[in-house]
């Protein structure tokens, strides 16, 4: 065979083979380093995405908008049916609105009566979804808020209604949200009203699996699923979805969040939940004075600390409960 230009040159062949072999070994070493020491490589990945994707935004946004417009345009074809449907829904909604307003007033009155202080710490930052993972095997999205905006790893994100996922991977200007449906996602949840604890584990299907239920007989399809706050990463009480029975006859969760249209996400600022480590101080009657002389003073001094201690325990307790979404009573 004569020498051709597009084939590798003869004299360079051994050297080239060596270089390519070294290259493959280096790549596999990178994979192993990632497997062994994932956070370091993941930080590098976050930095790279952070540097690259915001620069693509000028192009990403118009294309996504056009695609949405095409979707919307297709829906024009059945506009008449939609109109009828909406009118019917509006009728129903009016009744609901009336009920909601009454409930709101009632709620406000009751809150006022109880002097409830809602947890001021549970505020949120809203971010826009810039890009998704681009792979059918990874369920995550990229938000346009990052460490610059005070986001931290592990914070919960919600859309308007339900829990969507948590922050995992943080850049200066971007952050990645691992969705509940991702196969790496494990969320501790509580099933209401039975109060069963369980683990919501994603498996790349639209209905994530409800694992490790304490007593599966107590859980019925239709029950509400909220985050439980176990593990002290996520705040408790965020709505996740409803229990359904999957086609494989296992208990799964139909998510409340609208996964078809993730556009704006709220990142909840949840600060570290304070654990209760103290079993509670002993509230004892004042120690009997050994010498009878300063009876009055001793009683006065000794009476004060136990009251102080009791106050501490009470405050820690209410502080922890405020980690939940609903807040709790504080003493006036």
């Amino acid at each position: 065979m004569s020498k051709t230009r597009i084939g590798p040159d003869d004299y360079a062949r051994p050297l080239r083979r060596l270089l390519v072999g070294g290259c493959v070994v280096l790549l596999l070493a990178l994979f192993l380093v990632w497997r062994i020491d994932s956070p370091r490589v993941e930080r590098f990945r976050a930095a790279l995405v952070d540097a690259l994707v915001p620069n693509l935004e000028w192009a990403l946004v118009p294309v996504a908008k056009v695609a949405d417009m095409v979707d919307d345009f297709q829906s024009y074809t059945r506009i008449y049916e939609q109109n009828q449907e909406l009118k019917r829904e509006l009728q129903k909604m009016k009744a609901w609105k009336e009920a909601a307003e009454q409930l709101e007033q009632k709620n406000a009155r009751l809150l006022d009566l109880n002097h409830v202080r809602l947890d001021p710490k549970l505020t949120h930052i809203t971010g826009v979804v810039m890009a998704d993972s681009g792979s059918p095997f990874r369920q995550s999205v990229l938000l346009n808020v990052g460490a610059r905006d005070g986001i931290r790893d592990g914070w919960a994100t919600m859309d308007g209604i339900g829990f969507v996922g948590r922050i995992s991977g943080l850049g200066e200007r971007t952050s990645r949200v691992i969705l509940v449906t991702d196969s790496n996602s494990r969320i501790p949840v509580t099933v209401q009203p039975s109060g069963q604890r369980a683990l919501l584990s994603g498996d790349n299907s639209p209905l994530p699996l409800l694992d490790f239920i304490e007593d599966a007989d107590e859980v019925r399809p239709g029950d509400r699923v909220v985050t439980s706050g176990d593990g002290e990463v996520l705040p408790a009480g965020l709505l996740v979805g409803q229990v359904v029975r999957g086609t494989d006859n296992r208990l799964r969760v139909a998510l409340s969040a609208d996964y078809q249209r993730l556009e704006f996400l709220r990142v909840l600022r949840s600060h570290d939940i304070e654990p209760i480590t103290d079993p509670g101080g002993l509230i004892a009657p004042p120690l009997l004075p050994s010498d009878p002389a300063p009876v009055v003073d001793g009683e006065g001094d000794a009476a004060a600390p136990p009251v102080q201690g009791g106050g501490d325990v009470g405050e820690t307790g209410s502080g922890d409960a405020e980690g939940g979404a609903s807040g709790s009573g504080s003493r006036p």
Binding site: A131, P136, Q139, T181, P206
Partner: peptide
Amino acid sequence: RLLPLGNAAGA
């Protein structure tokens, strides 16, 4: 592939 057009889970 990066476009946020939604790879719905299970698709």
